[in-house]
């Protein structure tokens, strides 16, 4: 299985990435090519979007800007194996001068990870800061108050049970101030190491 990256950020979408990804999947099936399309974020070279990348033993090979009409010729040029003969081929992504010159900090992982895979995220140092935070003798804090109807809290299994109670009391005070109360939380476990408690809130008058 070969990983093929097609970005899903604003510019890539504005240049037709959605249709490209769909048609490429169909064409791959037709040709019996074993590929997995990963929708990543942009590498930041917007003039090349949609920038299609293929994972090879030497690193990712880039093609861009790719339109749906280029799909056939890409397969013909064996892009699945990183074929370099296609006119849109930009060579190894990391070697593109614009990117090569850069030292990336905040955007270090942008375009590299699969944004919807927590495993991939953790494999690239994800949750490192959070884990450090939980190790500190600090009580759990409100992670997210995303909508007025829901609040989610992340609780690590290593924490003592009493911290959960304390936490509930604290949350209750916050909610009271906002004139809301909450019903029994539902437990969601997206990652084995983390427990997320999600409260559905109801407004009370």
């Amino acid at each position: 299985m070969v990983k093929v990256y097609i970005p899903r950020d604003t510019t890539a979408l504005a240049m037709g990435a959605e249709r490209l990804a769909a048609e490429m999947a169909v064409e791959a099936k037709n040709r019996g090519a074993d590929i997995e399309i990963v929708r990543n974020s942009s590498r930041g070279m917007f003039w090349l979007e949609p920038l299609v990348e293929v994972e090879t033993a030497n690193g990712r090979v880039a093609y861009g800007p790719v339109e749906a009409k280029d799909i056939d010729s890409l397969f013909d040029a064996d892009f699945v194996n990183g074929g370099l003969s296609h006119p849109l081929c930009q060579g190894l992504t990391e070697e593109i001068p614009y990117l090569k010159k850069q030292q990336r900090l905040t955007f270090a992982r942008a375009g590299i990870t699969d944004p919807v895979s927590l495993e991939d995220y953790q494999a690239h140092d994800g949750f490192k800061g959070l884990k450090k935070h939980w190790k500190c003798p600090v009580r759990p804090s409100l992670m997210k108050l995303k909508t007025p109807a829901c609040v989610a809290v992340v609780v690590l299994p290593s924490l003592p049970a009493s911290s959960g109670r304390l936490y509930t009391m604290r949350l209750h005070r916050v909610m009271l101030r906002r004139n809301t109360s909450f019903v029994t939380p539902t437990k969601v476990t997206p990652v084995p190491s983390l427990t997320v408690w999600s409260w559905k809130l109801t407004h009370s008058c």
């Binding site: 604003t10 979408l13 504005a14 240049m15 003039w47």
Partner: peptide, 20 residues
Amino acid sequence: CLGNCACAPSIQVNDDVVGR
């Protein structure tokens, strides 16, 4: 500004931005 300057000119059709 739709934040798509690299691929100007841009328009937005409903929720979709379209570049160049």
